[in-house]
Simulated assay, not measured.
Amino acid sequence: MINRTDHTPLFCDIELAGRIERAEAQFIAACSDAARRRSEQAGFALPIAGGVASYAEPDSPLNKVAGLGFAGPADPADLERIEHAYAGRGAPVQAEVASLADPALLDLLAERGYRLVSFENVLGRALIDVAATVPPPGIDVRPSGDDEFGAWLAVVVEASLHPDTQGVPWHEDFPREILENAERDAAGLVQRYLARLDGVPAGGGSMHLADGIAQLTGAGTAPAFRRRGIQSALLSTRLADAAAAGCDIAVITVQPGSRSQQNAQRRGFDLLYTRAVLTIDPRPAALRP
């Protein structure tokens, strides 16, 4: 466990935030590309303002605009183009805007009628002197191969369908089938980890490595196995592997005030910045639900 009295908080400037947001945009774009190959639907991943506008399929968590605001001012014509693309798929636009992005971006989105619906926190920690801690008795965390994909997918999706109630809740709910599709689309891009308790699959997580950044792209514990140390074990193992792979920073996205944020801060993570989640429905009023 990290000794907080010896911990120097990680400072995030605009350059570091831009690096993290670019990695996020590239990851979302790659997942969106995988979704199109899987389903042959008319999805898209369109570049905009240094980020990406992604659409995978109806109700997908990959339907978002990510990473924008770090490559010069956004062009209103580009926003109109992506709004038209989402409207053509019968979907709203959801833009995630980092608090360190170009402030003019928020003004532009407000002028176009975007509405603030939620926030999410991006936490990070430098990967210096990182070693996996010994998990509690009975817990075993290991990288998960293709032969265990079914078990990994089942436990991760089950955890997502029953989120923790501490802190600000997610503003979206996704059907089981859509969550399974999103995890399959990301499967070839991430390192997967399966946690077992006394030999039984109890939790799972994943990690994406890019540009020296270890993106902790999700972790969950099945409801029956919570409060047993599984999340902490998953986090510790991934941090040690990220450091061994040569990454200099690890990042995780959490809901404000959540148990995931609490667990990450206990492991030495600091709040780097917040993302505002804004949305607009570009469809004609008669076609909106």
Rank of each mutant, 00 (worst) to 15 (best):
S236F: 09
T279V: 14
R115M: 11
L287M: 12
E172Q: 14
Q261M: 00
I20C: 09
D164H: 06
R288L: 11
A71R: 04
A243I: 01
G188D: 09
A214T: 01
E158D: 12
P9W: 08
S54R: 14
R115A: 12
V277H: 02
P201C: 11
L116G: 05
F44N: 01
A77L: 10
R19V: 00
P256C: 09
H7L: 15
P92D: 06
A87M: 01
P76Q: 09
W152R: 05
P135W: 02
G246H: 03
N263Q: 06
D78V: 11
R196I: 05
T217C: 03
R22T: 14
H171V: 14
E111T: 08
L109Q: 06
L100W: 10
A23P: 04
E80K: 14
R192K: 14
P103D: 00
I178H: 05
R38Q: 13
D13I: 03
A74H: 02
N3V: 03
P136F: 06
L108K: 03
L161S: 00
Q265S: 07
G67K: 12
H171A: 13
A182G: 03
V155L: 11
A285R: 15
V200K: 12
S60Y: 04
Q26S: 10
G18D: 09
R192A: 11
R226D: 13
F174T: 14
A245R: 04
S60I: 03
Q255D: 00
P169Q: 04
R112V: 04
V93E: 09
A233G: 05
I178A: 10
R184F: 05
D198H: 10
L116W: 06
D147H: 14
R4A: 07
S236A: 12
A42W: 00
P137M: 08
D107S: 12
D146T: 10
L235M: 15
S32A: 15
L235D: 00
T133F: 01
E96V: 02
G145N: 10
G43H: 11
N121D: 12
V130T: 13
R267Y: 06
T274E: 10
D33N: 05
D78A: 15
V157M: 04
A126H: 06
D129W: 07
I230F: 10
D33H: 13
G145K: 08
R142M: 11
G50T: 06
D6G: 13
G150M: 10
Y193V: 09
I82D: 02
L153K: 11
D281N: 06
Q262C: 12
A91W: 15
I28H: 09
R259H: 07
L197F: 13
Q94H: 10
R89D: 03
G124M: 12
G246V: 01
S99H: 06
G212V: 05
I28P: 02
Y193E: 04
A34H: 04
L105I: 01
I213R: 00
A186T: 08
L46H: 14
H171T: 13
A71L: 02
A233C: 07
P284A: 13
I280P: 01
M1Q: 14
P223V: 06
D211K: 09
A214S: 02
A219S: 15
W152E: 11
N181C: 14
P256V: 01
L216H: 05
F44C: 07
